[in-house]
Write a protein that binds this DNA or RNA. Sequence first.
DNA 1: TTGTAGGCGTTATCAC
DNA 2: GTGATAACGCCTACAA
Lengths: 335, 335
Amino acid sequence: MTAKRRPVTIHEVAARAGISKSLASRALRGERGVADETRRRIHTAAAELGYRINSAARSLAHGRSGIVGVVVNDIGNPHFAGVVAGAELEARERGRRVILGHGAGSPGELSRQVETLLELRVDGIVVISSWVPREVLETAAETTPVAVVARLNDPLDAVDTIAGDDVRGARMAAEHLLAVGCRSLGYVTRSTSVTSEARFDGFFAALCQIGLEPVVHRIPHGDDAAIAEVLHSGVDGILANNDLTAVEIFRVGREHGIDVPDRAATVGYDDTPLARLVTPGLTSVNQPQRAMGRRAIECIAERQEGRTDPVRALYEPKLVVRASTAAFDRGVVPR
Amino acid sequence: MTAKRRPVTIHEVAARAGISKSLASRALRGERGVADETRRRIHTAAAELGYRINSAARSLAHGRSGIVGVVVNDIGNPHFAGVVAGAELEARERGRRVILGHGAGSPGELSRQVETLLELRVDGIVVISSWVPREVLETAAETTPVAVVARLNDPLDAVDTIAGDDVRGARMAAEHLLAVGCRSLGYVTRSTSVTSEARFDGFFAALCQIGLEPVVHRIPHGDDAAIAEVLHSGVDGILANNDLTAVEIFRVGREHGIDVPDRAATVGYDDTPLARLVTPGLTSVNQPQRAMGRRAIECIAERQEGRTDPVRALYEPKLVVRASTAAFDRGVVPR
DNA sequence: TTGTAGGCGTTATCAC
DNA sequence: GTGATAACGCCTACAA
């Protein structure tokens, strides 16, 4: 088979239906002002020919594509999947489509993806990451609505932000760890994002209030040795910057013969599906990912309709207790 | 701030640089035949104005966008992340960009994403799923190179396919389970995809050869009861259709007070990062995800350059043994 | 090396 | 209800 065929144009559809292309255009878009019979003819012609609108031509002429671009920090992290799912739901309800750009965790790649979507002339951009450089957001926002689902320090007025209250969430985690009897606490992160920093701040603040000095550990990705060191340091309660990191701690513990939740109660962040999945179940700070994704699409729509003052949505976290912090508090073990 | 500004056009860049837009076009694309000094002027003009090419206009005029679309079955499954990563690497090396469409596991949504990408006039489409309906692939392939990274029964000549040898992989899993002493084996899947079927076939065949009848269980998503039933049925070795399912089995076991790897050795499929992460480590059938992703992009490029006969790439699976099948075979416990 | 004149497939604006 | 015709922003001859 088959050298590729040029795609069918509206012109050909019009010819086959025996009418002009302007009429075909109107009919195909479902506008009124086309005779029913004509409309029918046009639609069957289009179907027979396998007509597919040329989005490039459309957005050139009409100015918008009906597509919103979502740039994701890292598809490997289940947290993002939740936000994306929410965004997709909302977009669909509003008759828009979503395409994704994958940032692979690096500011450079993230920026490139934003660029690509901009060149594609999407109607709006949702960035699920705090790693996109400020200048990139700024120039993007000059021509297109932009919403960021992540913490940003000093966000631009032209971009909406949607985030969980990381400080509060981390504080809740700290209080929980203390409540189950931990006394020597540590924060483990593999990231230096502002999100991770905010979580540390909340954690730190909570502990200072009761006179404890938290151990801090930043672990460059993949550095198991550092995690092992934490586990050997006598820490008996850990907050990880996210669920993935928490599970890595489990793994390192296992590989070093340390039963982590037994020796050090562990709390994750994001409450992704992973938290429920792993053994033992992981206590985690829940964020309403879907709701946040939905809100982002709403923001885009509102900006399109003319809103100019920024949204600064902050969602309440919620602690979900599972077995990973139950060893200390020898009551009923939640699953 | 800031009603949205119309994006800067090449015309404005040309005006500011004091030359014609065709010259600007050539300079901006880095073609030769432009005086160095002029080129410089044009580039600075573009930078000052914040010029960004209009991909719509470009692909209208030039016929191609330099973008290839990748449709993913489900971003929540780490298997896909690996393939996407490979595709992105290869695309980047070839100077193409990648955008993603998310199929959310349903044929309808997958088809819609393929449609969207087609309307965007991407230069090629990579589908990482076996759930896209044949007709959709067929019409897509009429105008655009299409490569599917998944098993397809009776694939179209116009579509390249890239898959792991599922039959062989499942056979390896079966042989391994037998080798570590399992005698009553079961296959657990939450999917009815052809991929899952092929894995079952391989599993089944291997067991028949030695006179065992495998128990088969298909578990509609989320049905923990059925998994529990399997665990109570006296099965002592399980192959799951993928890593995620395997870990779900762990979870259900835990919630029912059954120590899964101890009572039933468990093998996953795909060897995603998850397999190494969970406790106990999950024995899994490895597929070279990145390589498969790369190959898909190669296929697109080759089709663009005129190849018309289909590629049917089949990758060798490899069993990676971890602790989840070590309980029976009381030797050294691999981590 | 530079500029001019289409044309790509749609939509929008007018006439008819 | 229908059909010309002019944009939209870029690229590609071709001419200067």
